[in-house]
Design a protein around this nucleic acid. Structure first.
Lengths: 234, 234
DNA sequence: AGCCATTATCGTCATGGCGACGACAAAGGG
DNA sequence: CCCTTTGTCGTCGCCATGACGATAATGGCT
């Protein structure tokens, strides 16, 4: 194999969460060159005997301090432009993680500091390497997957209300959804959510029923995103 | 960079086409170890200065003799189990290609012979490396994408009839679709297909209108797959 | 030529999901 | 005790869809 071009292989993570009605991404501030001082997606090199999902899970645990008990992790795509890293030929396998807002301490295991940044505060060209595009692809994937999978629940704690779930959709899609129709849709789609039997207490307004993720892997029919065709004036 | 584990990076192609009412995949017979004599997905090593999409396009051109004029090519996923290749640590970026049945000569640029094989004739464990799984993922992706994209047209020549398009769906999904409802759906979804203005001649039955691919990147609403819960007699 | 098989295309009708919205239930705060 | 807030259930009309029937336009056959 020595006759073939040697590559370095890394994993990078697009870790998304919803907190305070904002879609946020986990970013680290780079402590070394290149792009020293810039924000970047968390990630690292894959060990020579390490499987790719294992590397992604390991990095996620290192950066967030949790072993993905809840949430969701899937492969997003691979990016390998010859000059994406000035140090040499690095191919990175990007992963998308959706996590509930667990107020992670995000203790930087590495020297770099990490933090949740709202997507609305990020401007293009702000991230190191090609991470702007990776992040954009991840967000796009997340938005699309909310339509036809029950993955919105990955942003919620194990038990959640219909309103919390609706809040996830509204935040990720940037739209408003009718509470009554949303309630009908969620509770009416088989396998989307499963009732716990208990209700919230202590909040404002009428207590809400608690639910868990249902067993359905896909939403049939899908959750429809409202008409996004701008045109404010009807 | 020499301090980081060296990987070999390859691209592998899942090239699908529809011919004779069969979903077929382009496979090559391996001429060297490992897996000598076994069928495998076409692919090869990525050049040290070569971009990943460029490598995929190059391999596709080498194996099929065409520069992807029609059809569709997208990244499928990356597979990198530490022992997927006995020769060493090889990470492969798999790509999915959908092509019209152009009766490609499939002149083996490499010494290996290549051919179209119907999926129905393949049994699990028949392909080299982890290509069984890569192929399964590719087919699954293709089936899913027919639902919400106009990509079925990628299996057709530049100009095609509604019936040809329906045949693609029926073959890839393994179902039957009502010709009248399908016609209404296809011609009624904006941007799915664009009428050419001419019609076929010389075939059996009434001449059919010719269409081209429309500009829509997504199908709204999606093409629904018939209830697959049918317990067939088998 | 005439009939028929074949394929393409248009219509009709009932059903079901969804958007818009009204109504009621169940809590807390003044 | 009323009012506000939030959750849940119902109703109505529209539209896309599945299940057909009907008609149009060809080729093949006798």
């Amino acid at each position: 194999m020595a006759e073939y071009p040697p590559f370095a292989v890394t994993v990078d993570l697009v870790v998304l969460t919803v907190r305070a009605d904002q879609l946020c991404v986990l970013l680290v501030r780079r402590g070394i060159e290149p792009y020293r001082g810039a924000w970047a997606l968390p990630g690292g090199f894959v060990g020579i005997d390490e499987d790719l999902p294992a590397a992604a899970t390991r990095e996620l645990a290192e950066e967030t301090g949790l072993a993905e008990p809840a949430g969701h992790l899937e492969q997003l795509g691979t990016y390998g432009h010859p000059r994406r890293d000035p140090r040499g030929r690095v191919v990175t396998v990007a992963w998308l993680a959706l996590l509930p807002d667990q107020a992670n301490p995000v203790a930087g295991t590495d020297a770099a500091s990490a933090d949740w940044l709202p997507l609305s505060q990020l401007s293009p060209g702000q991230l190191a390497f090609d991470h702007d595009r990776v992040l954009a692809d991840g967000v796009e994937r997340a938005r699309a997957k909310l339509e036809y999978t029950p993955l919105a629940a990955a942003f919620c704690p194990p038990e959640f209300t219909v309103a919390q779930l609706r809040g996830v959709y509204e935040t990720v899609w940037g739209t408003r959804l009718d509470p009554r129709n949303f309630h009908r849709k969620v509770t009416g789609t088989p396998g989307f959510v499963a009732p716990v039997g208990r209700a919230t207490e202590g909040d404002r307004g009428r207590p809400a029923q608690l639910f868990r993720r249902g067993p359905a892997p896909l939403l049939h029919p899908p959750m429809l995103r409202p008409d996004q065709t701008g045109q404010t004036g009807s």
